[in-house]
């Protein structure tokens, strides 16, 4: 055999292993842990990032003060942030989630800031001419202009989170998909690694097709069929 079967298992073997790990192993709790971390980090980063992004987009002074830090944040290697936080805060759940948040935050801020800057002043004038109160302007004028950027930030941010949360779990955690894969790595258990990866991809697909895409379709409905 040119490819030893232990290192190149067939899809069927991986499938059987996947079921086995789900029923008898720790696959479900591991997935749960990783999803929990990713969800918290995602929500915190999106909320904070959107708020800061709006502030930087609206205020030139704030932007001048912080834009350098955004550039630093966008480009600092993810692993450095994680290691530094693990040293300072210990190998804790909090340090892990904070590291993910800090890695994603600059991306969200930069995207939202661009969104706010692209707001059309013509709509501000429309609001003033018809004396639209602030709450209504927020709902009907600002948010719809911002939504495509929030969705873009969510999409790029989510893919980034999937990637780094596993790396940080390898680096230091007591469970989760990344942690388990690093254990498999020590035993060269490629079947386990592929089974976990498959399970993880399945979760991502579910999220993509049952949450993200329907949400996008709903929010951006008005752009459908638009040729411009």
């Amino acid at each position: 055999m040119l490819f030893p079967s232990r290192l190149f298992p067939t899809p069927i073997e991986v499938g059987i292993n996947l079921v086995n790990l789900a029923v008898n192993g720790k696959l479900i709790p591991d997935l749960g842990k990783t999803l929990y971390r990713a969800t918290i980090a995602f929500l915190v980063a999106m909320t904070l990032g959107t708020a800061i992004g709006i502030a930087l987009g609206r205020s030139r002074t704030a932007d001048r003060l912080f834009s350098t830090w955004i550039v630093v944040g966008l480009n600092v290697p993810a692993i450095v942030v994680a290691i530094v936080l693990y040293i300072w805060l210990g190998l804790t759940e909090f340090a892990l989630i904070l590291a993910v948040v800090l890695n994603k935050l600059p991306l969200v801020i930069a995207t939202i800031r661009e969104g706010v800057r692209s707001f059309d002043p013509a709509y501000d004038e429309l609001g003033r001419a018809f004396r639209m109160p602030f709450a209504r302007r927020l709902r009907l004028v600002f948010l719809p202009q911002l939504m495509p950027f929030v969705l873009a930030a969510a999409r790029t941010g989510l893919s980034l989170i999937w990637k780094i949360v596993l790396v940080f779990e390898v680096l230091g955690s007591d469970g989760g998909v990344g942690f388990r894969i690093s254990v498999f790595f020590q035993f060269f258990d490629i079947k386990g690694i592929l089974a976990y990866t498959t399970a993880f991809i399945l979760v991502v697909f579910v999220f993509e097709y049952l949450a993200l895409r329907p949400l996008e379709r709903r929010i951006l409905r008005w752009r459908q069929g638009r040729t411009a």
Partner: peptide, 16 residues
Amino acid sequence: PPAGFVFQDARLLPWL
């Protein structure tokens, strides 16, 4: 009371 203002462009909100 606000006047009925008509701008140079239609200036409709495209998402409504």
